[in-house]
Amino acid sequence: MKMSTVVRTTTKMVSPFLVTYAAYLMLYGHLSPGGGFQGGVILAVAVILLITSHGYAKVRRRFHFNWASLIESSAGALLVLLGLAGVAFGAFYANFLPTEGGIVLPFNVIVGLEVGAAFTFVFYILLRWVESD
């Protein structure tokens, strides 16, 4: 599945900006509207856009299936470790960072990676059936 040159060029240009926007949402989630989940979804959209315009086979060569899986699982592990680190400071998920927003910032970033990787992963798996070329 391959779309016209216009679409392909546009998506190529839009995707990096989407990634930037996702990063902004994750990093400023504790101060402004946004947060980990929203950032993660936009991160996934950046990849999904490329897949729909350029075709599954081509994108998969660059952005590997296993990478998505690896990012997803290690982000999950980090999330738990963040919670466990709080135990040392009194309670599970205790807020131990003295910075603005505390552990909300790392939490949002990790959740963003987790959600983004997971959405890409799900999209890959569904496309495996839809598109076999």
């Binding site: 699982s73 999950g76 592990a77 738990v80 470790l81 919670g83 466990l84 599970f92």
Partner: peptide
């Protein structure tokens, strides 16, 4: 329980 989630992911 979340400890397990971590182990599963591992």
């Amino acid at each position: 329980p979340i400890l397990f989630a971590f182990l599963i992911v591992l």
